[in-house]
């Protein structure tokens, strides 16, 4: 009995959340959907963001903030530095592999 249980182990799938403002919150809609590929194999569940009671209110604190900083070149530079750093690290490991 125990053996069958082990053999039939259910895979514990991750429920993917959304990425807003540097955090991974759950969707406010509370809905999730399952995507499938051509072989009808399903993957983990994904947050299903809905418009009406949407994540848009969630974005509200982010949007003016980012809108404000987006206009500043200094912040643009900061993004660029982060991006550069990111790609340099990628390049290094690319050269190593």
């Amino acid at each position: 009995m125990a053996k069958t249980l082990i053999e039939k182990r259910l895979e514990i799938l991750k429920t993917y959340k959304i990425y807003i403002g540097g955090k991974f919150p759950r969707t406010e809609s509370g809905r999730y959907y399952v995507a499938t590929n051509a072989k009808k194999k399903t993957w983990p569940m994904f947050a299903w963001v809905r418009g009406k009671i949407s994540e848009m209110p969630l974005l509200r604190p982010v949007v003016p903030l980012v809108a404000g900083v987006a206009g500043l070149h200094s912040t643009a530079d900061k993004f660029c530095t982060a991006l550069l750093k990111c790609s340099k690290a990628a390049k290094r490991s690319l050269l190593m592999s």
Partner: peptide
């Protein structure tokens, strides 16, 4: 929406790449 798997993992990559929070926001739906 049909192939969201990479996008969510990509969000995790961005989150740990010292990109300031809120610069990239990724939704699924």
């Amino acid at each position: 929406s049909t192939k969201p798997l990479c996008a969510v993992t990509f969000a995790e990559v961005l989150n740990s790449s010292d990109l300031p929070g809120g610069v990239v926001n990724i939704l699924t739906g």
